[in-house]
C-alpha cells in the first residue's frame, strides 16, 4: 500500500487577541536555513497559549492572508507584529503548515 510521509497540510488558525502579547518566538525567513518562519516557543499566558492551537515546530505560511514566502526574517516578523498591533481586527489569522 501507499504510505504518506511528511505531507504538509495547510491549516487556518485564528488567534483571538485575548492577552497583551501574542507570545510566539519565531526563527527563519528568506535567505536562512529555515526559509519560512517557524514557531520555536509559545509563552504561557499569551494569546497564542490561551488559543491553544499553535504548536512549536509549525511553519507560518500566511498572516491575515499575506504570504510570508520570500520575506526575510525582519520583514516577516514585522508583518506578524503589525497584525497583532492593528486595532482593525481582534484576531490574527495564521495559515500554518504542519506535518500530519
Amino acid at each position: 500500500g501507499l504510505t504518506q510521509v511528511g505531507i504538509m497540510e495547510p491549516v487556518l488558525i485564528r488567534v483571538p487577541k485575548c492577552a497583551s502579547t501574542l507570545g510566539i518566538a519565531v526563527e527563519g525567513g528568506a535567505n536562512t536555513r529555515q526559509t519560512l518562519p517557524r514557531i520555536t516557543t509559545i509563552q504561557k499566558g499569551s494569546s497564542a497559549h490561551i488559543c491553544g492551537r499553535l504548536r512549536v515546530g509549525q511553519v507560518i505560511l500566511e498572516v491575515n492572508g499575506v504570504s510570508l514566502k520570500g520575506m526575510e526574517h525582519r520583514d516577516a516578523t514585522r508583518v506578524i507584529a503589525e497584525a497583532y498591533k492593528t486595532k482593525d481586527k481582534d484576531f490574527v489569522d495564521f495559515l500554518i503548515a504542519e506535518f500530519n
Binding site: 502579547t21 501574542l22 507570545g23 510566539i24 518566538a25 519565531v26 526563527e27 527563519g28 525567513g29 535567505n31 536562512t32 536555513r33 529555515q34 520555536t40 516557543t41 509563552q43 526574517h73 516578523t77 506578524i80 507584529a81 497583532y84
Partner: peptide, 15 residues
C-alpha cells in the same frame, strides 16, 4: 563533486 548549500541560521524574534 558534491555541492553543498550553506545558508546561515536565522535569528529568533519574540512577538
Amino acid at each position: 563533486r558534491e555541492k553543498r548549500l550553506t545558508l546561515p541560521p536565522s535569528e529568533i524574534t519574540l512577538l
